[in-house]
Amino acid sequence: MTAPVPHDTRPAQLTRSRTTPLRAGRHVFDLRRRIAVMAIVNRTPDSFYDRGATFALDAAVAAGMAAFDAGADIVDVGGVKFAPGPAVPVDEECARVVPVVEALSCRGAVSVDTFQPEVAAAVIAAGASIVNDTTGLRDPRMVQVVAGSDAAIVIAHSLAEPRTPYPEPRYTDVAREVRAQLDHRVAVAIAHGVPRDRIVVDPGHDLNKSTRQTLELTRRLGELSALGLPMLVALSNKDFIGETLDRDRGDRLAGSLATAVWCVTQGARLVRAHNVRETVDAMRMIEAVHGWREPVRERHNTPPQGDD
């Protein structure tokens, strides 16, 4: 009779992660044992998801406060959407995002989604800890701004000039090409004085990519984990989820959570989300199952407290 195989009691390792702690201003995120949730607050009149619901200053600040209350580790404030459209003057973008940063930075880490170096400098001065550049350092002045501060930088993969269309994007090997561009941009940032422990990479779900390309990139996300840097996934409610499941903009939560969980198993350690409470719960469950987090309480099938 074959002897039973002994059960391995060691905790399983999440796939291909060599993540190190992330330093962002006065904040340090030990992403080796935690998945950070980045909440989204858009101070734009035309954001694809909320359609301007948080464009008013008081609404944006209230949304950011609520996100922290719901467990978000970071609140990401945006004043200009990535999608094609007319240019927004730097002064106007600053007027949208700086007051929100000033109001929220006392509560926790605040990121600002911008590709304008002047805006990045203004929000860092106002208390932002992270600059989230969806153009992947296309403007070389952005590197200088971040290098001269203690803020972290998110370097996203995209191909288009800011706010310009990029129809029918083509890749010979989407995962390999995304990794190569991110590797190059990271090298540029480091060469200009940005410490490695203040750099995050983002594969750019849907950014100048078709649904099939984004699905393949997601499937092979572990190949990007080999970069050895914290990886952010910004996939919440995006079109590739809607097109895959045939779901409208307001009905993509289940698909978003399923994809986020997959990405975490492949090495992502920051998840950007509109639905904060649900995403926080999903990430905390992953941490608990993996042995990184204790249950808040334990009563099920356990003796009442005080019993021998």
Rank of each mutant, 00 (worst) to 15 (best):
D50N: 10
A39W: 15
I35V: 14
P45N: 14
F48Y: 15
V28K: 03
V28F: 02
D50V: 07
L22W: 01
A24V: 05
T44E: 11
F29I: 06
R51P: 00
R26Y: 04
R23Y: 03
D30W: 04
V41P: 12
A53E: 10
R32F: 02
A53C: 11
F48D: 09
P45K: 15
D30E: 08
A53K: 14
V28E: 04
L31D: 03
T20G: 06
I35G: 10
A36I: 09
M38T: 05
R43E: 05
N42M: 14
L22S: 02
V28A: 08
I40P: 04
R33S: 07
R43A: 07
D30C: 04
A39D: 15
D50F: 07
F48I: 12
G25P: 03
G25W: 01
S47E: 11
T20F: 00
R18F: 00
V41L: 14
S17F: 06
F48R: 15
L31I: 04
V41R: 14
R18A: 01
N42T: 13
G52L: 08
R18T: 00
T19E: 02
G52C: 06
G25F: 00
F29E: 03
T19N: 12
T54S: 14
G25L: 02
V37S: 08
R26C: 07
P45M: 14
T54N: 13
I40F: 11
V37M: 10
D50R: 12
R23F: 02
V41N: 13
A53T: 10
A36C: 13
S17H: 09
A36T: 09
S47G: 09
A24N: 09
T54C: 13
V28Y: 01
A39G: 15
Y49F: 15
R33C: 05
N42C: 13
T54L: 10
R34L: 07
A36R: 09
S47Q: 12
L31M: 08
R18P: 09
R26F: 02
T20W: 00
T20D: 01
P21M: 05
M38W: 07
D30R: 03
G52W: 04
L22Y: 01
A24D: 06
R43G: 05
S47F: 11
A24E: 06
D46W: 09
D46S: 13
P21W: 02
